[in-house]
Design a protein around this nucleic acid. Structure first.
Length: 473
RNA sequence: GGCCCGGUGGUCGAGUGGUUAGGCAGCGGACUGCAAAUCCGUCUACGUCGGUUCAAUUCCGGCCCGGGCCUCCA
C-alpha cells in the first residue's frame, strides 16, 4: 500500500508522489508568538508530526525536510507587548520558549528548520520587489499590495487563478466582504505585502513609500519567503489548520506562484477544528484551554492520544472526560509494557495493518486499534516469544504515533500538579503496615490504610508478586 | 447572500454497496478476604424523504439540522 493524502486542492485523497523521489519536503504554518498555545492550536503540530514520523520511516529520517515557522512580527504581538508594557523582542523570545516546551510535552519532534519571520525579511523584500516588477503588485500610500485582478488576467500557470485552493472567486469575496475596504486598495480583494511602520513599531529599511522608509511585512508574505528559502519554489506538502485556507494559504499561493512562475506546493492538507460547546475553540470566542494548563492536570501523552483518537480532518469536541479516557487508555498500554521489561522499540515491527491505516490519509483512530490489540496480547500471553513480539509491536506503533515514550514506572508515578503529594517513602511504609494487617487477617485495618492512600491519590493493586501502587490520574 | 464540510448504537469514534470495527461506560460472570488490575460474555447503529440497484448506512438528488470560511484565527 502506498501513502494517500487528502489534498485540499482537489478535495480528494490522492496517492502521494514526492517531486524528488528520494526526498520529501513539508511545511507547516507555525505559531504567532504573542501568547501560549491552546489545545486547538496544538492539533496541527501533533497530527502533522505523525505525518513527519511516517514520512521519515518511509523515506529515511535524513530524507525528510520539515519546516515550521515562527511568526515573530505581527500586529497582535505589537499590541500585546504594549498592553503588558514589555519589549516586543522579550515577548516573542519568551513565547517562543514556552511554545517549544508545550510542543515538546506533546511529543512533537523538532522540525528540520524553524525560521523566524524577522530573520527572513530580506527574502520577503526580494519577493515583493519581484512581484512589483512583474506587475502583480503595486505601491500605494507607503503600502505594497498584491493586485488580485492582475493574477486573474495573467495566471502564472494555466488555471492557477486566484481562488484555486479555497474555491472562492473574487466576486463572491467582494460581495460578501464584511469590512470596509482600505482606500488605497485598487481592488477590494487586494491584500498587503508591506506596510509602513511608525518609529515605535518594528520596521526595516525599504525602498517603498514616499520618501522611502521603514516598513514591516504583511502576514502572508512571511510563509512564502520562509518556505521558498528552506524548501524551494515548489515543495511537496503544505499544511495547517482549516481556517488558514482562506485567506492565508490562498494568498501565499498567489504571491509565490506569481513571483516564481511555479506551483507552490503539490499537496495542501488542513486539519479540522477543536470545538468546545459545539463551537470552534478560539481566543476570540473565549472557550480556549491552554496546553500549559492542561499539562498541570494530565500527562502530555494523554493530550496527544486524545488528539489522535479523532481523524485529523474531523471536528473534535474537547472535554476533560475525553482526556481522562485517553489517560486511562495509556494506563492500560503501560501496564502491558510493564509485563515485559527490556524490550526496545527496534525489537518489534509495526504491524502491517497499522501502517496501512496511517498510509490511508493518517487514519490514526484505526491505527490506535492496533495499539489496543497488541496491548491485549501482551497482557494475556505467556509464551515469551509472542510476549516479546506483542510488546515490540506496541512500542513500535507507539513510536510512530509519538506515544509510549515513558517507562511504566515513571508513567504510574506521574501525578497532577493540583494533587496532594505524598512521598514514596510514606507510601511504602503504609503498604508494609497494610501487608502486616492483612497477614493478621485484620482486613478492617488493611482497608482503612488502602482508603487513606486512595484519598491521597494512590491506588493499590495486590498481585501474585506483591502489592504495587500507582498514582491516580 | 456566496462557498465549503459534516450528521453512525448510552457515549467517543472508524469504515463499508451484500459478512463483527474498536474504545469507554453499563450489565452478567471468573479472579480477589474485599478491592484494583486482568479475562470471558452481553448491549448492534448509521438525520429525513425519494431515486439507482437483485441489494444502500455506504452511490445520486431534495429536505432538515449542525459546524466552518468569506475579518484576526490552528
Amino acid at each position: 500500500m502506498t501513502l494517500r493524502l487528502h489534498n485540499t486542492l482537489t478535495r480528494q485523497k490522492e496517492a502521494f508522489v514526492p517531486l524528488d523521489p528520494a526526498n520529501v519536503r513539508m511545511y507547516v504554518c507555525g505559531p504567532t508568538v504573542y501568547d501560549r498555545i491552546h489545545i486547538g492550536n496544538a492539533r496541527p503540530f501533533v497530527v502533522f508530526d505523525v505525518l513527519f514520523r511516517l514520512l521519515r520511516r518511509q523515506y529515511g529520517a535524513e530524507h525528510v525536510k520539515y519546516a515550521r515557522n515562527i511568526t515573530d512580527i505581527d500586529d497582535k504581538i505589537n499590541n500585546r507587548a504594549k498592553e503588558r508594557g514589555i519589549d516586543i523582542a522579550a515577548l516573542t523570545v519568551d513565547t517562543t520558549r514556552t511554545f517549544h516546551e508545550d510542543v515538546a510535552a506533546l511529543g512533537c519532534l523538532p522540525p528540520t528548520f524553524e525560521p523566524r519571520a524577522t530573520g527572513t525579511i530580506a527574502e520577503m523584500q526580494e519577493m515583493i520587489a519581484a512581484l512589483i516588477a512583474k506587475g502583480y503588485a503595486y505601491e500605494a500610500q507607503g503600502h505594497v499590495l498584491f493586485h488580485v485582478p492582475a493574477m486573474m488576467e495573467r495566471p502564472p500557470l494555466p488555471k492557477h487563478v486566484y481562488g484555486l485552493l479555497s474555491k472562492k472567486n473574487r466576486d463572491d469575496l467582494v460581495a460578501g466582504a464584511r469590512i470596509d475596504v482600505a482606500p488605497y486598495k485598487r481592488d477590494p480583494a487586494d491584500f498587503v505585502l508591506w506596510k509602513p511602520s511608525t518609529p515605535d513599531l518594528p520596521g526595516w529599511e525599504s525602498p517603498w513609500g514616499t520618501p522611502p522608509g521603514r516598513g514591516r511585512p504583511g502576514w502572508h508574505i512571511e510563509c512564502s519567503a520562509m518556505s521558498r528559502k528552506h524548501l524551494g519554489e515548489t515543495f511537496d506538502i503544505h499544511a495547517g489548520g482549516l481556517d488558514l485556507i482562506f485567506p492565508h494559504h490562498e494568498n501565499e499561493i498567489a504571491q509565490s506562484e506569481c513571483c516564481n512562475g511555479k506551483p507552490m506546493a503539490r499537496y495542501w492538507m488542513h486539519n479540522g477544528f477543536i470545538e468546545r460547546g459545539g463551537e470552534k475553540m478560539a481566543k476570540s470566542v473565549g472557550n480556549i484551554d491552554r496546553v500549559r494548563d492542561l499539562l498541570d492536570e494530565f500527562p502530555g501523552e494523554a493530550l496527544r492520544l486524545m488528539l489522535l483518537k479523532t481523524h485529523y480532518r474531523s471536528p473534535l469536541e474537547f472535554t476533560k472526560e475525553g482526556l481522562k479516557e485517553a489517560k486511562a487508555q495509556l494506563d492500560h498500554y503501560y501496564r502491558a509494557l510493564a509485563r515485559v521489561p527490556g524490550v526496545q522499540p527496534s525489537d518489534g515491527a509495526v504491524p502491517i495493518s497499522a501502517i496501512g491505516h496511517l498510509e490511508d490519509d493518517l487514519n490514526t483512530p484505526a491505527a490506535i486499534t492496533s495499539l489496543h490489540h497488541s496491548a491485549g496480547l501482551a497482557l494475556q500471553e505467556n509464551n515469551p516469544e509472542i510476549l516479546q513480539g506483542a510488546k515490540g509491536s506496541l512500542v513500535a506503533i507507539g513510536g510512530l504515533l509519538g506515544l509510549l515514550n515513558s517507562s511504566p514506572d515513571a508513567w504510574f508515578r506521574w501525578s497532577p500538579k493540583t494533587a496532594a503529594s505524598i512521598d514514596e517513602a510514606k507510601i511504602t511504609s503504609l503498604i508494609d503496615a497494610r501487608l502486616a494487617a492483612r497477614k493478621a487477617k485484620n482486613f478492617k485495618e488493611a482497608d482503612r490504610i488502602r482508603d487513606e492512600l486512595a484519598r491521597q491519590g494512590v491506588i493499590l493493586e495486590d498481585g501474585p508478586k506483591g502489592t504495587t501502587w500507582r498514582r491516580a490520574g
